[in-house]
């Protein structure tokens, strides 16, 4: 199986879905002539034309809302926010419109829109451009939120998202575009709302997703050198959240650490810990630890920024605390 980057996997997913279904189109800032600010849609403008690869003005509110409206009226838009930080401007369009229209009107309409948004910290972009605000979006029923950690999952999940009849926010961690893993050449889908065991182990369960999952895997590899066997579970989807594999693993290891790049307070980890407490209390042998970003706006200077973010050492330290 060829190894490709997550960037290529996303590009391939978009292209395959556009070839499969004429109602799939792309809209967003610099998706066309420029080729995508992260080069995901390079070549698309020439291949598919201006009708299906639509450059927009810098207008997140209408990108969010018009994509939803087009989806309500039969199309399958993939709307790209240049970064998830800018999607704050479209929060109302996404959570108050795209995610509400079906329920609010008694099931009369569906809104099969995909919002793609690169995000995350670690690239020295300063406080406003480095958010990992996934939990904000994952809070609301009616919306689906996914964020892959591998090229394989990115491709399969994005294809599922485009075919899904519901609004899906697809969050791409911008430090993961260059990671590579095996991706089949034949068609496959990865279901939304299914967690996945990415590494098997017996001593401790490490739960993560996206960039946090990669940090967790790196930590697990190092722990193995010390004879500690960590099982790593990838959430992949934040809503719907699939606790099945997490609980199953916890029932085996009795100990858990949750890794996320966002803030600890009211974060993904808080939810996972609460669910483990509610649904797996009898299996708990130690306090469950959370590894998350420190509670500061992210600074520019490289070392300073890195010190605020999650890393392998912090995960290893947390694991040792629960063992």
């Amino acid at each position: 199986m060829p190894k490709i980057t997550m960037r290529q996997a996303i590009t391939d997913a978009l292209r395959e879905e556009m070839l499969r279904d004429d109602n799939v189109f792309i809209m967003g800032q610099e998706v066309g002539v420029w080729g995508g600010t992260y080069a995901v849609t390079r070549g698309f403008y020439d291949e598919f034309g201006a009708k299906r690869v639509r450059d927009t003005p810098i207008s997140e509110m209408v990108i969010g809302g018009a994509a939803a409206g087009a989806a309500m009226n039969g199309l399958r838009p993939v709307a790209e926010f240049m970064t998830i930080n800018f999607a704050f401007l479209a929060l109302d369009a996404i959570v108050n419109h795209a995610a509400k229209v079906r329920y609010m009107f008694g099931g009369q309409m569906k809104c099969p829109v995909v919002y793609r948004a690169p995000g995350g910290g670690g690239r020295q972009l300063g406080a406003t451009h480095s958010h990992t605000p996934d939990v904000i979006f994952a809070h609301f029923p009616g919306l689906k939120v996914v964020s892959p950690a591998t090229a394989y999952d990115a491709k399969g999940l994005l294809k599922s998202a485009i075919r899904d009849d519901n609004p899906v926010l697809f969050i791409e961690h911008h430090t993961l575009y260059q990671i590579r893993d095996e991706v089949p050449t034949e068609e496959y889908l990865v279901p939304i709302g299914k967690s996945d065991v990415k590494r098997e182990g017996t001593d401790v369960t490490i739960v993560g997703y996206a960039q946090g999952l990669q940090v967790a895997l790196d930590a697990a590899a190092k722990l193995a050198e010390e004879g500690i066997s960590a099982e790593v579970v990838d959430l992949r989807s934040l809503r719907p959240l699939d606790m099945g594999p997490v609980l199953k693993s916890f029932q085996k290891t009795f100990r858990a650490v949750v890794v996320e790049e966002g803030y600890r307070t009211f974060g993904i980890g808080a939810e996972i810990v609460a669910r483990l407490h509610e649904e797996g209390f009898d299996y708990q042998d130690a306090p469950i630890k959370r590894v998350a970003q420190y509670e500061v706006p992210l600074p520019y200077s490289r070392e300073l920024e890195q010190s605020a973010l999650i890393n392998v050492d912090r995960v290893i330290k947390a694991v040792k605390e629960v063992l």
Partner: peptide, 18 residues
């Protein structure tokens, strides 16, 4: 939501043009 439906209307129109 005041104004929130205006982009939806634009999107509905986009689908018809499309």
């Amino acid at each position: 939501i005041v104004g929130g439906h205006v982009p939806l209307g634009v999107g509905i129109a986009l689908a018809e043009q499309y």
